[in-house]
Design a protein around this nucleic acid. Structure first.
Lengths: 232, 232
DNA sequence: TACGAAAAAATCGTATACAAAAAAATTATC
DNA sequence: GATAATTTTTTTGTATACGATTTTTTCGTA
């Protein structure tokens, strides 16, 4: 298992920033200055740039020539389209899982939700990430890595969207509903599973209420927490 | 319409390389040395590197630390999974188009196929690209940019796959079948449209027959053609 | 004070330099 | 002559340097 094959530093910076975005520690619109990031991670701008290019090609950051990068701010139109495609792909996930999912897979799902339940109440970044990772785990259990990759990307983008347009960050992903999804999959009740998932994703309900930007300045303090992230 | 907003040179190099891959001018496994590419495009390795990072994050090139980049070589497993998801997404495209497609959209499709017919017989890179772009156009007509983006990515990856595993590059995408798809969409015959599309994509039929690599060396000559590509 | 122009600072875009690693070529040894 | 060890060359990974652009600040004028 030592085949670890150390990734480029650029990849590491990319992963850290990605997680910070997923956990809504970096909010949409946050300016991402190359110097500041490089300093936090102890690398040069060259490396930071690599990471930013990666993030841009995943639509998690937006770049303007000579103006640097910001955490992406999807429009409402984009947001709707992203949710639509997420719907579509997660429905495919459900269909595939019901067709064949292993006992081990179901156990993994249970374990994950248990973990979610444990941190419930505490409404921090961990809870947001776990909620997203539940959906990613579902997709991975299909064993189609392409599907899983797209779902993963979409989940992160949705986290971005919810950070922009949802007022209640807390109930974004109720643990109960995750349990219901597992149950429906276990029962091979495709109708129920799809309907729960539909309700669960339920598009973008809230409207923009964070018009006043309380973001922007805290880049340094946020990155400090992500510079030496303990858990993978 | 002068809002053109010049892209980074890195983006340009990326686009050129991407097209070369789509057109199967750069075959899977082809070594992509940074110096060579930079020289052809008249930019420094810094810029080439940006392009390679972009391509890697789209799975069109693979990178090994200290060993540089190659055009990706999807395994048969990956190939199957890619085709599966392409199936899934293109089915969604069909459903959406049948639900509502404009006359203008249908005309655009006709025009495109006419163009395909014009270069038919000549079995060169243009024909391969046009065949792929038909599917991308279909996806774009859904007006869901996310969906279109994923389809576009998948089409390119499939071109890569066919370059590896198909023996008859010619009949990869018959113009006739494209016409049938358009007709079925026009008739709003969803059954027919889906079935034609299914048959059209028909997964990976051929098996690996290009075990001997006749690639590798022609990087320079290939890139020369793509360095100053006339058509966007 | 408010506004606009000019200067200063900050930030980005790209090329280049240099160390480290890998690949290729050379030499030595059997 | 074939193989192993060593040197040379090539190529990559990263930091840094410098011009260009943008943003901020300063300063003058109404």
């Amino acid at each position: 298992m030592s085949e670890a094959k150390q990734p480029f530093n650029g990849v590491i910076v990319y992963q850290r920033l990605r997680r910070a975005i997923l956990e809504q520690a970096l909010l949409p619109g946050t300016r991402l200055r190359e110097d500041a990031i490089g300093e936090q991670f102890g690398v040069s701008r060259t490396i930071v740039r690599q990471a930013l290019v990666r993030l841009e090609s995943e639509h998690l950051v937006e770049t303007q020539r000579n103006r640097g990068a910001c955490v992406a701010e999807p429009t409402l139109i984009e947001a709707e389209q992203i949710f639509e495609i997420r719907h579509c792909l997660e429905a495919e996930v459900i269909r595939r899982l019901i067709e064949r999912i292993s006992v081990i897979g179901l156990e993994a799902l249970d374990a994950h939700v248990d973990q979610e339940a444990r941190v419930q109440g505490k409404d921090g970044p961990v809870s947001i990430r776990l909620a997203g990772e539940f959906h990613i785990l579902l997709a991975e259990l299909t064993e189609n890595r392409i599907l899983a990759g797209y779902v993963s990307e979409l989940v992160t983008r949705c986290s971005l969207i919810l950070a922009m347009y949802s007022r209640s960050h807390s109930s974004d992903c109720a643990v109960d509903e995750h349990r219901h999804i597992i149950q429906a999959v276990r029962d091979k009740d495709i109708k129920a599973a799809l309907s729960i998932m539909d309700h669960h994703l339920g598009a973008v309900q809230g409207r923009a209420d964070l018009s006043g930007d309380q973001k922007e300045d805290n880049l340094q303090s946020v990155l400090a927490r992500y510079a030496e992230d303990p858990s993978a």
